[in-house]
Write a protein that binds this DNA or RNA. Structure first.
Lengths: 380, 380
DNA sequence: TGCTGTTATGTTTACGTGAACATTTCGGTG
DNA sequence: CACCGAAATGTTCACGTAAACATAACAGCA
């Protein structure tokens, strides 16, 4: 299994790449068409530079640069020759030199606390996809513990990092207070925050989603709606709780005491055991789907049927939500759109086009499944 | 909400960073201590280079470089002066120039298909954390659709990318066949693959985990164990299915027909409806927890009680597994360790120390919860 | 034919860093 | 006191790219 042989880790299929035209400028294959399979030197492979390509193509390196960047005013003939030379030598632009020369890295940094919550992950994925489409790379900056020290650490790592913009997926109050400084001209976009007056913020319309959920439950005849909230530190949790209370108040109902979890299914289960004991609780709006999962189990364990005895609505619409027992009615978040907007906003800010602060909200959608029902007349 | 004012997006707290010594060399604050708050020029901010620091400190830029890199043979006195100058000017090493000069990027690329499966996400998170600890950044390369074209696309994007090594979290057969070429001297480490003879592979001990699960069920008195497998394209799924069959055979049992899902809870639900109809099915080993979730719901819907009528074991031990109905017995994967090993292996390969191929397996652990029980005598 | 304007290409240079080599300084020694 | 060697610091240069500034080639036109 362990061969001591010093072969490089190149991919197989050395000669199989004929006939496939490279899509963009500056992209070419590594393999020298006719060369034998092993041709790597002992140490690190030599880097092919524009000068090498220029020499082979019989042009100046500036012309190679022009071809590589798709500039106009290069004869079709010349361009062909240069591309051929690139391919033959396996030329690959050196991004470090490019970044040095251009003064930009074409990279976006993403600072995120945990990847344990679906929302963060989905947003990250969407950011990565959008960024790739725009020709930007995404660098991940994990923060192990959401303390200010850790956040400050991430930002100081960031200082040495090659990024043009930063997207922060995190409660920003950790950021506000942290005495962090950013490299000049690095732009920031923030998700999950109410810091719209200081930063550019992109977020799901927490309030709108919450209103839809609460109103739906009231519309089903429930006297009031209980709320299982997320942790106190989260702005998203805060916003959902505020909107829940405001919606009830606006409808002339009394808000029952707020129950708090920490986003985890376990905390949902604990809260559920508590709520199951209260016969007056017939409708619960849970701040995320994972807690709703735990809540459903607790209600089941205590013999409270969903949706006959208790209606439950979650938030997020994670892929598994439709497979819960029963399938969960929940507020769908469009994470893909959030990610897309983050990238678009960051790029706009880099081009000095967008405003330096302000909030963009992404609408939600209530997905009705089987965990909500019309309220039955009082039990027993 | 949208202010047109052209202020920069700098972080607040301009003067609050006094008295905090910078931890390493080359790190300094942005703010000029006595300067007023607004001092950014219209366009992009001027970059402070080593030469600027050198001039202020009254030394050569080479000395600044030495201080920045912690080299010896710099007087304590000189070092102090340089550090002070760095701080005053807000010097920040230019990573592009560094990369160009040093020939390495201190960056690891991670190619991954989807972030929808817990395993990939957890592995990615561990990779990012380990890499950060080693002073490496992580660049994310999402592949939208796992087709060879897409994979090839990711690799060609990679060609322009500033990475020293690549970790692939994906079934590698897509990679083997794709006629991709890598930049020279970029190292590859692969997760979820059986390509150990071509690549360096780090993976969970799928076979070991499966054996433990199947034997546990047999030990509970079940005649045989059914298997709900992952999609045909996945090596992990393949390995689990193979080990399931082998373990049954070794125990002298007959393997029932294999049922296939696609990792999703929905597919687990579909398969569960099917299995629920077969009275002889009393034990199911499910290839991941998400499908197990769907399966549990299907069994419940069809009145088959878990674990009284049917025992179920999952694979992964996702955080929610303990909150399933009933809490799921499952095979725990140590994703953190997988990620750590990926980074360690990649770095070792970059230093030409490790072998060029071979497989490293990370052991699993069976977590017993409430979805398995001793087999009851035949029903009815 | 000579002039002008446009287009294709070449030459020079700087981006910020850090290795290699050169120089200075200084305490110690014959 | 001349000299040596080590330590501290300075100078030169190249990394690969691309902007800025030449220059050459050539078509259109008076």
């Amino acid at each position: 299994m362990e061969t001591a042989e010093g072969a490089t880790a190149d991919l197989p299929g050395p000669g199989a790449d004929r006939g496939q035209e490279d899509p963009g400028p500056g992209v070419a294959d590594t393999e020298v068409p006719g060369a034998p399979v092993s041709r790597r030197r002992g140490g690190r492979a030599a880097t092919v530079s524009m000068a090498d390509v220029a020499k082979l193509a019989g042009v100046s390196s500036q012309t190679v640069s022009r071809v590589s960047n798709g500039h106009a005013s290069v004869t079709e003939e010349t361009r062909r020759q240069v591309l051929a030379a690139m391919k033959e030598l396996g030329y690959r632009p050196n991004s470090a030199a490019r970044a040095l020369r251009r003064g930009e890295f074409r990279t976006i940094g993403v600072i995120t606390f945990t990847l344990a919550t679906t929302g963060n992950v989905r947003t990250l994925e969407a950011i990565a996809t959008s960024a790739a489409r725009e020709g930007y790379a995404v660098t991940l900056l994990p923060v192990a513990v959401p303390t200010q020290d850790e956040v400050r650490g991430a930002f100081s790592r960031l200082e040495e990092l090659a990024v043009d913009a930063v997207i922060v997926i995190m409660e920003v109050h950790l950021l506000d207070a942290a005495t962090v400084t950013l490299p000049p001209h690095v732009q920031v976009v923030v998700v999950d925050s109410d810091a719209g007056d200081h930063y550019t913020v992109v977020d799901t319309d927490q309030a709108g989603g919450t209103r839809a959920a609460v109103r739906h439950l009231l519309g089903l005849g429930h006297e009031t709606v209980w709320h299982l909230a997320g942790p106190a530190g989260s702005f998203a949790a805060q916003r959902r709780a505020d909107a829940w209370r405001a919606t009830l108040t606006a409808a002339g109902r009394t808000a029952p005491p707020l129950v708090r979890g920490d986003w985890s299914a376990q905390s949902g289960h604990r809260a559920g055991l508590d709520l199951a004991a209260r016969a007056e609780c017939t409708a619960v709006f849970v701040a995320n789907d994972q807690m709703a999962l735990g809540l459903l189990r607790a209600l089941h364990e205590r013999g409270r049927r969903v949706p006959e005895d208790v209606s439950v609505i979650g938030f997020d619409d994670i892929p598994e939500a439709g497979s819960f027992l029963p399938p969960l009615t929940t507020v769908h978040q469009d994470f893909a759109e959030v990610g897309r907007l983050c990238v678009a906003t960051a790029l706009r800010k880099m081009r000095q086009e967008g405003p330096s602060c302000g909030t963009t909200l992404v609408p939600t959608r209530l997905v009705e499944r089987a965990s909500t029902a019309v309220r039955r007349p009082a039990r027993g």
